[in-house]
């Protein structure tokens, strides 16, 4: 893959009750968003173990997107707030070793916000193109 045509790999962990449904809505609404995003459906953003994010980066992801419900809307009371704490923690640890904060996004996207989902994926893909490839997997696997 040549540098100028760099297409980032984004792994998206989406909450079944909101962002995943929003992605579905974006599709049925025929919205166009970059195909860089690979979606994994989770039952809650609070289920996203930091190991999943870390493994994604170690296996060659350029960015990770976690989509959860707006505060107060979590199907399981407060899973999204747990996700927020974990992301804060991950930002600190990953940035310590040179993985920029902008490679890990946490966004609240409600089930009705198909537009917001498409916009977020577009914006994240654009930002990752600016940042360039995440070299972690080539530098330091295992």
């Amino acid at each position: 893959m040549s540098e100028k045509q760099f297409e980032p790999n984004i792994v998206a962990f989406l909450c079944n009750w909101c962002t995943f449904t929003a992605a579905d809505l974006a599709g049925t609404s025929r919205l166009i968003y970059p195909s860089n995003v690979k979606i994994i459906r989770m039952m809650c953003s609070g289920m996203v173990d930091p190991k999943y994010v870390l493994k994604s980066f170690l296996e060659g992801a350029d960015g990770v997107f976690i989509g959860g419900c707006w505060p107060g809307d979590c199907h399981y009371i407060n899973g999204n707030m747990k996700a927020r704490r974990r992301v804060a923690l991950m930002h600190e640890v990953l940035e310590r070793f040179g993985i920029e904060r902008d490679r890990l996004w946490l966004r609240w996207v409600a089930a009705s916000e198909g537009n917001a989902f498409a916009d977020t994926v577009t914006a994240m893909t654009g930002r990752l193109k600016e940042l360039g490839p995440c070299r972690v997997s080539r530098e330091a696997v295992a």
Partner: peptide, 13 residues
């Protein structure tokens, strides 16, 4: 053995 960096960073988290 594999997963060495994975182990240490996970423990940090």
């Amino acid at each position: 053995p594999t997963d060495t960096v994975f182990f240490h960073v996970t423990r940090m988290l």
